[in-house]
């Protein structure tokens, strides 16, 4: 089934860019250029995700969100905003948004976040005790990791990083998603801080293996999965 995404954005260039990108990635997109139309389309309820610009002509993004949630529509919402201050972000998230992305953003970042949210919405897995990816196994109870029967010793921080990756197998996670998801750290250090973490983890997991599991996605971030 093709997944439908509603894009509410008044800036045509940005909207084109997002819609094209999403369609390339196999999503169907509906577009609305103002809050009123957006709200009207959103009440349809068949979308798997709504991408909502915060500053809109007519009905403001936050008002659209409030109206949606008020009407009991639980479709996941990602807010796009030029307002990047922590207060704006917190206000967005506490008003019922599922994620908040500050403009300008890399398309890969938006895509990764949409995928995360869509996946979260469709598959609510039962409580897992073992996370798997190919022949890599993480036992959450004994906190042991092995690959192909070989025990891998991880530092606590590496363990947490790998746990987050394994909970999102085959999804692209960006550096900022990792900083937020693993450490609840909302500041991008702007250096290659995360890259070093990943290269260390890769050494422990993939070194000497025929099939690497940890992949770098150019211009976006990382992905764990059996497919190269």
């Amino acid at each position: 089934m093709t997944q439908k995404i509603l894009l509410i954005e008044d800036d045509t260039t940005t909207a084109d860019f997002i819609a094209n990108g999403l369609e390339e990635e196999g999503f169907l997109t509906d577009r609305a250029a103002n809050g009123r139309d957006g709200l009207f389309l959103a009440t349809d309820g068949t979308y798997c995700c709504i991408v909502l610009d915060r500053m809109l002509p007519g009905l403001d993004g936050m008002a659209v969100l409030a109206a949606l949630r008020g009407a009991g529509i639980a479709t996941p919402v990602i807010i796009l905003s030029a307002l990047g201050s922590p207060e704006d972000r917190i206000k967005g998230l506490t008003s019922g948004a599922d994620d908040y992305l500050t403009k300008p953003f890399a398309f890969a970042e938006l895509l990764a976040r949409i995928r995360l949210i869509v996946r979260r919405g469709t598959a609510a897995p039962a409580v897992q005790t073992v996370l798997r990816c190919d022949d890599l196994e993480m036992d959450l109870l004994s906190r042991r990791v092995q690959r192909g029967g070989r025990q891998i010793d991880l530092q606590p921080r590496e363990y947490r990083l790998l746990e987050f990756l394994l909970r999102h197998v085959d999804q692209v996670v960006t550096r900022t998603i990792l900083l937020e998801g693993v450490w609840d750290y909302h500041f991008d250090p702007g250096t290659n801080v995360i890259d070093v973490h990943l290269s260390r983890l890769r050494k422990k997991i993939d070194e000497g293996q025929a099939r690497p599991l940890l992949h770098t996605v150019r211009g976006a971030g990382y992905r764990i999965g059996a497919q190269p």
Binding site: T13, F17, A106
Partner: peptide, 24 residues
Amino acid sequence: TDTLAHDLKSPLTRMKSALDRLGR
């Protein structure tokens, strides 16, 4: 400043979008 930031961000967003598209 808010307006300036907002005004600066829109062209920056478009610039990044263009570069992003180019990169792909």
